[in-house]
Each structure stands twice: as structure tokens, then as C-alpha cells.
Nucleic acid binder design. Structure first.
Lengths: 212, 212
DNA sequence: TAGATTGTTAATCGATTAACAATC
DNA sequence: TAGATTGTTAATCGATTAACAATC
């Protein structure tokens, strides 16, 4: 069942399920039907059942789903019970913010280091971690078993850094640089293109105002 | 032609077209065919032509598209030649980073103010702008013709703040808080759920490693 | 004019929703 | 057992791709 390819549309919905189920769990709710979840989440009950069934049966006919069980299963599917060691590349505003922000830690994403080439930043402490030179990256990645790199560098250098990261065996890149990265198959890239997101918002505002 | 509803799938691709066309323009390339663009962007030529034709004909048969013209038309569609006044709500790590980051300015998104309720932050200068109390928000929004609010506050207070923003006439919310906001129809919400994005990355890494 | 390439219609594919039999 | 609700198949819808006539 792990082996049929799950569409990215489904994967994209899993974190949201996970979030709502976590909240239900915290409220002490033990069971929920697809219809009740549908009402809360504003998606069809049918879609909920289809989505869950991509991974095998999590529910019980005539009863519904056990919230805590479902929550944990989705967490497992998302790989949240494994730890991922990550480094941040680019210690500018965004890189620093993400380093400090990190309540990703409790989801198993461990902040291990931050790198930059700007000499003014070298040695600066960010969340008890000194900014290191990018020359040290290769050895650091290998010695610390880093599997995720967060790219918060300007687009000009992103391709080159991504290439280097691929070569030294990183598994995933969380890319905030505003370029499409070309990496070998097997290295996962997740893009966060903030300005694209803001443009979409602008479009929808204008569209609504001009009689959309 | 402005009036048929364009799907969000299409809208979501516009910023990427805009980016590639901007690069082509900077390289001095004057014309391009859908096939050439297809090769560069890794989407089908058919999709490119369909997408553009949602907005009327930008090309010329037998010739292709004029890069600069197309670039500007897409910019217009996205509303990038109007200015949008924005405020940031929440002067934590992320809020400060976005305030400083702002090379959104050149796309017409003007940073006008930053708000927080944390007394330690009040009055602190961020990019030459003093952090203001959220009590001042209502008057500020009205006096400064603010149409976009960037929410970088904890999820606990996000719903309440979103409600207040709706009431005082904001047009769009760029939401970094990890909740689904319920706002009246007519107020646009664009979500950036960073932890969801990171979870997707984790899924794809694990999936690949476990023989996906 | 001939060649190229768009704009647009038709075909296909995939994702969502509806329906219902299986079963707790 | 009867009622409820899943798991799953079938129907629908929408988005993508292919094909080609229009036309520069």
C-alpha cells in the first residue's frame, strides 16, 4: 500500500488534516466521522474518505475515525516521527528569522547550523549557533548527518549552492530563493516563493474590485 | 474578457511566467514562441497558449509572442502596476524579516507600518519605522489607505485580528499564522503555511527513501 | 506565397464528488 | 438486529494535452 504513487494533491492536504486532528485531539475529542470533519474543514466527506484510503483503512464502518489514531497515522505518513537534521544557508533576515522561529523542532526538524559567506556575519551568534563559512558546509553536512538544507540566499547564487548540496548528498532543499532549481532526481525540492504568493494575493484583490 | 472567471490553477502560474519573461527581457530577447518557452519552463506549449488565451490574444500567428509586451501584460493582470499599501502585524522574527526583506517594494507593495502588542517591541525601529501598538491599527489603516495586512502573529490571536481587519476595511490578508481564517467574502486571504510546506518536503524525502 | 505559430476546438487524463454495498 | 458510516466503485467535473484551422 505504500507503493502506489500518491498524488501531490493528496499530499498537499495531509498537513491540514494533521493540524485539524491535532486540535480535535487537544480538545479531548475521541472520534469523528468524515461528515463531521467535512463540516469543520470545509471539504467534502467524500474527499476525506478518498484521501485517507490512499493509505489503507484508518476508520471503522458505522463508527468513524479515532482522532488520536488518525492523527498519529498521518504524522507517520508525513514522516514526523523521524528526525531531520537541517541547516540554513543564508544568514540574512529570512534565514535568521527561520532559525529563531523554529518551533519546527517539535516536529522533528532539528536546526543544526547556519552558513553564510558575508564576512560581517561570520561568527555572529544566531540562536546559540555561530554563523559558519560556506566553505565548511561540505564537511559539516557529512559529519552531522544533515538531510535538509534551507536556502535563504539570493537567486544569483542559489543554483550553484544547490548543485554543491546535491553533490554532497543532501536529501531535500527547502527553497526560498526565487529561482527554479534543477537538481538530480532523488533530491526533493520544496519551493516557497513568497513574492509569487504576494502576487497571487494582489491579483485576487484587483480581480474582486474590478467586478470579478 | 476580464469577466470570465479564471481558475486559480492559471493564476498560480502567472507569477512564474512573469519571472521567466522578466529574465528573458533582461537578456535582451525580444520574441519567443510557446514552444521555446515550453522548453525553458518545462511546461507544455499547449498549456502556455491556453493560459495566455484566458486573457485574450497576446501573440501573433506565425511569429510568437513579444517578450516585453507579454511581460507587461502579465504584470498588469497581476495588478503589479498599482501600488498596494501594506502593514505587518506581528513584529516577531518573521514580521521583522519580512519588513526588512521587502524587495516587494519594486512590485508596488509599499511597507507602511508594523504593529505589535508586545510592550518590549513598542517603539523599536524596524526599517526606520517604529513598532506601533495594535490599538492604533484602526485609525492607521484608514488614514493611510492600507489595503493589505501581513499576519505574522501566533495562531491564538490570528482569528481575532483578522476579524478586526475585516471590519476596518482591509482588502487582503497575507496570512503566515498557522490557522485557517474565516473572513467575509470580498476579503482575499493568501496563506503561507510554512510548516505545511516543510511537512510536504519531509514526506517526499521519506517517500523517496522508502522506495516510492 | 510558403512557413511558422498562434488561437481554439476536441480528446484525454486526473481529480473530485456521488452513490451504495460492505460491515462494524 | 438496525443504524451508522466506512471503503470503494462509478459518475462527473475540470484541467491538461493534442490537433488543426486560422492567419500573420
Amino acid at each position: 500500500m505504500e507503493n502506489k504513487e500518491i498524488s501531490q494533491a493528496v499530499i498537499g492536504r495531509l498537513p491540514r488534516y494533521f493540524r485539524f486532528l491535532g486540535e480535535l485531539k487537544d480538545e479531548g475529542i475521541e472520534r469523528i466521522s468524515s461528515q463531521e470533519l467535512s463540516d469543520i474543514m470545509q471539504v467534502t466527506a467524500s474527499q476525506i474518505r478518498q484521501d485517507f484510503n490512499n493509505f489503507g483503512g484508518f476508520g471503522q464502518q458505522g463508527y468513524g475515525y479515532k482522532v488520536e489514531y488518525l492523527y498519529e497515522e498521518i504524522g507517520k505518513i508525513l514522516g514526523l516521527y523521524k528526525t531531520h537534521n537541517l541547516i540554513i544557508i543564508g544568514a540574512g533576515n529570512l534565514g535568521q528569522a527561520l532559525a529563531n522561529y523554529m518551533n519546527f523542532e517539535r516536529r522533528g526538524f532539528l536546526f543544526k547550523g547556519i552558513f553564510d559567506n558575508n564576512p560581517h556575519l561570520l561568527g555572529k551568534k544566531i540562536r546559540n549557533m555561530e554563523v559558519k563559512s560556506m566553505d565548511e558546509m561540505e564537511i559539516f553536512v557529512k559529519e552531522n548527518d544533515i538531510d535538509i538544507a534551507v536556502l535563504t540566499i539570493p537567486k544569483a547564487s542559489a543554483a550553484e549552492v544547490a548543485k554543491k548540496l546535491s553533490d554532497i548528498g543532501i536529501r531535500g532543499i527547502w527553497n526560498f530563493a526565487h529561482v527554479d532549481l534543477n537538481v538530480p532526481r532523488g533530491i526533493q525540492v520544496e519551493n516557497v516563493h513568497l513574492s509569487d504568493s504576494l502576487m497571487k494575493l494582489a491579483y485576487n484583490i484587483n480581480q474582486f474590485e474590478n467586478g470579478g
